[in-house]
Amino acid sequence: MKFHLKSLLYLSVTLLPSLAFAQDSLEKALQMPTEKKNVQATFKATKLINIQTNETIYKNELDFRVDHRFGDIAGSAGGTKNFFGLDQSTDIRIGFEYGISDRLSVGLSRAKGAGVVTQLYEGNLKYRLLEQTADDKVPVAVTLFGSTTLSAAKASTDPTAANAFGEFQDRLTYVVQAVIARKFNSNFSMLIMPSYVHRNFTVFGDQNDMLALSVGGRIKITKRMAFVADYTIPFRDKNKEAYLESTLGTQYYKTLGAGLEFETGGHIFHLNFTNATAIQESQFITDTNTSWLKGQYRWGFSIARRFSFDKKKAK
């Protein structure tokens, strides 16, 4: 009896799977390749609202991007008299980026520039140093961004002004950033980014070097629409900040941007609100003098279109 039970058990163990087997055993026979995958599309665009993302464009692609910031919606400068900011534009930027490789892109842009330092020409490089992998062996993506901005504005005769350029070098501002990003799941990505800004020339009494830290994120609402936001904290010298406030009455604020991102396959649209008047990191980190709490926030939008020039055959 004992023997029978055992063999019955044995038979059922060996035979049952092979009887119910057909598809199952075939499935086991399948030899799927093990792919090493990098996480794609942590963000959809190369920028969030004010700050860069870790994304770069692919090789031989051209990204054409227009950014616009209107005037203050509310506060003393806003309201009906400037049609909630729509009568003004604090900054406009038109930029091109080209993919040298899937990791490296170069950019050229022209921006109006906010404040007195205007007529900006920017050259930038963006390099994807590290990519997040699907197996989480590399949990974050790291992208480096560097830019040089030249102001072509007429030099002011007021020696204390931010645009009292004496020499050519005075017109230059440099930015170095490291974007550390993680896609937590297909709906949620975040980034943290330290920045270093060096201005060769500033308003009298301000600091030339500044460090800043930004955080940003993206939450998908639908397949093609997402909520995006970013926040940047500049680290200012307290004494210099107090001096500028007492002499010029200038106050400096952290920047907060929030908005919606629409993706339509090739085009990315952003519709956003931000207190920063300037678009480029060469200005908004160091020179945001407008505050959300004073109604000094504005509409902004951006349109980005990617063109592909890659005609290589699919591998």
Partner: peptide
């Protein structure tokens, strides 16, 4: 039976490949 990893499809345009997988 057949089984294919969707990410193994290669496109001429990489942005298309990204959209294929993402959207």
């Amino acid at each position: 039976i057949f089984k294919i990893n969707n990410t193994s499809f290669q496109f001429k345009k990489k942005l298309m490949q990204e959209h294929f997988n993402e959207n």
